[in-house]
C-alpha cells in the first residue's frame, strides 16, 4: 500500500513537471529541418529520414547496430553458459504449414520492397529486417528447421555482417583522408544501399536469434512436463537457489502473467 502511494506521488510529480515543461517551452532557435532539406541533394537518398539515419547522423545508426549485435552476443554467451535441452519448438499443424507456405514468400517480397523503398519513401533496413525476422519466427513456429544456424561460425558471421560492412565503409572513407563515415562524392547512394542490404540481413538474423536463444519451454521449471522432456543434459538446472518449482503455487510466479497454466509442485526433482 505504501509503495502504491509513493508511486502515485512520484508519478504525479513527474507528470506535473513534464506538463509545466510542455507549457513553458520556448520557440526553437535552430531550424534543423531546413538544414536537412537544404542538403538533401548531397545525401544520396531522396527520403529525409533515411538521409538523417544513414548519412547525416549515420554514427548514431552505427552505434545502434552495435547495440543490437551486443544484445545477441550476450544471449549467445548465456546460451553457452546454460546449455538448453534439445529444441522441440514447432506445432505439428498442417493448416499452419499451408498458411505459412503461402505467407513466407510474400513476407520475403515485402522485406525486399521495404528495403528498396527506403531511399524514396517510408521503409528501410530495420523495417525490412523486422519482416524477415517475422518470416523466420513463423517458420520456426511451424517446426521448419531453418538454415543458417549451423555451423556456428557462419551464423556469427551473418550476425556481424551489418556492423562489419557499415564499419568497413566508414573506415574506408577515413583511410581515404575524408572523415569517418564520409561517403565519397557521388557514391553515397550506392554505399547506403549496400549498407542497408547488409543491415537488413543482419537485423533479421539478429532478431530471430534473440527469439531462438531464450531457453525453450521444455526447460520451464514450473511447467507440467514429463520426465522425457528434460533429458539429462542439464543437470545444473534448478539447483542454483534450491527453490526450484517450490513457488509454483503462487500464481504470480508463473512465467506468463495470467497464472492459468498447469503447474507441478515438484518440477525441480532431479531427472
Amino acid at each position: 500500500m505504501i509503495r502504491v502511494a509513493l508511486a502515485a506521488a512520484a508519478c504525479t510529480t513527474f507528470a506535473f513537471a513534464l506538463a509545466v515543461a510542455l507549457l513553458e517551452r520556448p520557440v526553437p532557435a535552430v531550424d534543423l529541418p531546413a538544414a536537412v532539406a537544404g542538403t538533401l541533394g548531397a545525401s544520396g537518398v531522396e527520403h529525409p529520414i533515411t538521409a538523417v539515419l544513414l548519412n547525416f547522423r549515420s554514427y548514431d545508426t552505427l552505434l545502434e547496430i552495435a547495440v543490437l549485435l551486443l544484445a545477441v552476443v550476450v544471449a549467445l554467451a548465456l546460451h553457452e553458459a546454460q546449455p538448453d535441452s534439445p529444441d522441440r519448438m514447432g506445432l505439428d499443424n498442417p493448416l499452419l504449414r499451408a498458411v505459412i507456405g503461402a505467407l513466407v514468400p510474400l513476407m520475403l517480397l515485402t522485406a525486399g520492397y521495404l528495403l528498396w523503398a527506403g531511399a524514396t519513401r517510408p521503409g528501410g533496413a530495420f523495417q525490412a529486417g523486422a519482416v524477415l525476422a517475422a518470416a523466420g519466427v513463423s517458420l520456426r513456429l511451424a517446426g521448419v528447421a531453418l538454415p543458417g544456424f549451423e555451423p556456428p561460425r557462419l551464423w556469427h558471421a551473418g550476425l556481424a555482417l551489418g556492423l562489419a560492412v557499415f564499419l568497413a565503409v566508414g573506415t574506408g572513407a577515413l583511410l581515404a583522408e575524408g572523415g569517418f563515415l564520409a561517403y565519397p562524392t557521388g557514391w553515397a547512394g550506392a554505399l547506403i544501399l549496400a549498407i542497408e542490404l547488409a543491415l537488413t540481413l543482419s537485423i533479421g538474423l539478429t532478431l530471430l536469434s534473440l527469439y531462438r536463444l531464450a531457453p525453450p519451454n521444455a526447460d520451464d521449471p514450473n511447467a507440467a512436463v514429463d520426465g522425457s522432456a528434460r533429458d539429462g543434459r542439464h543437470g545444473s538446472e534448478p539447483v542454483a537457489t534450491g527453490r526450484g518449482g517450490a513457488a509454483s503455487s503462487d500464481e504470480d510466479e508463473q512465467i506468463g502473467m495470467g497464472g492459468d497454466s498447469p503447474s507441478r509442485p515438484d518440477a525441480s526433482a532431479p531427472p
Partner: peptide
C-alpha cells in the same frame, strides 16, 4: 533472454 534464464534457474519471475 536474461529473465527467462533467471526464471529457469530459480523458478521465480
Amino acid at each position: 533472454v536474461i529473465f527467462r534464464r533467471w526464471y529457469r534457474v530459480s523458478g521465480h519471475a
